[in-house]
């Protein structure tokens, strides 16, 4: 172990490997955070399409498109989606995009598929009377949804959204498949340089663990704050 430490210390501190790790960590967080935001936005949109009463054919078509979208992103591995998106779709469209940005969008679209299902069940769990009361006051469907139903749905599904964020963070570890240098890739580079992997990989695991613990704590605090409206004062 002593030798391993020495090798790691040299690479990490003396030769400045920590900089790659910090950069990688930033990339990991970027993908997960922006990905989740994209996921929540698109996911809420899909969920709304799924729950809105289908009065006209256009909405039915839209609903089928959403089904296909969710089916694809939940039915295929994320790595495959990354590979298709970055090495097939982008070149086919003639676009040159930095791998990180491609990863952010693909993770976001993947997350949207999961968030949409969660959000849909959250919306459906809100008492129908809430929507009726809003509509009876002359508010239209989308205002009623945005001001009354969705805020309550989000509160209901907050723990699940927290879990989604956690799995998103962990899934970013495969972003290097499309040449993104995230925190996993950074530690792998350190290990590769001397074929000494024990410390880099254990440290990597510890970093993910700490990130997840911080998020868990954050979600718990947020939940407590949002639960204000349930408490008796």
């Amino acid at each position: 172990m002593g030798a391993a430490w020495e090798v790691f210390y040299n690479k990490f501190i003396v030769y400045g490997g920590w900089k790659t790790v910090v950069d990688g960590l930033v990339v990991t967080l970027q993908i997960a955070v922006i990905g989740l935001i994209i996921g929540i936005l698109i996911g809420t949109l899909i969920a709304t399409v799924k729950v809105v009463p289908k009065r006209n054919p256009a909405l039915k078509v839209l609903s089928v498109i959403c089904d296909i979208y969710v089916g694809f992103f939940r039915g295929t591995p994320l790595v495959v989606q990354l590979l298709i998106g970055y090495f097939v779709l982008l070149p086919a469209l003639g676009l040159r995009v930095e791998a990180v940005y491609a990863a952010i969008v693909i993770y976001g679209m993947n997350s949207a598929a999961y968030v949409s299902e969660t959000m849909r069940s959250g919306i459906q769990a809100v008492d129908i009377g809430q929507m009726e009361a809003a509509r009876a006051l002359g508010l239209n469907y989308s205002t009623s949804m945005m001001k009354v139903v969705i805020p309550q749905a989000v509160k209901n599904i907050l723990p699940t959204l927290g879990n989604e964020f956690i799995s998103l963070i962990k899934e970013t570890s495969v972003a290097s498949f499309i040449s993104v240098v995230d925190v996993t890739k950074a530690f792998r580079q350190i290990g590769d340089s001397n074929y000494e992997y024990i410390i880099p990989y254990l440290m990597l695991a510890a970093i993910y663990l700490i990130l997840v613990m911080i998020i868990t704590l954050g979600v718990r605090l947020l939940e407590r704050r949002l639960r204000r409206s349930d408490r008796r004062s």
Binding site: Q130, E132, A136, G138, Q152
Partner: peptide, 21 residues
């Protein structure tokens, strides 16, 4: 209908106050 509902108040059995407000 939204325009006309503004002039027709409704009170429900289950109150249906907005829980998030």
């Amino acid at each position: 209908i939204n325009k006309h509902r503004q002039h027709i108040g409704m009170v429900f059995q289950q109150f249906n106050l907005f829980n998030n407000k």
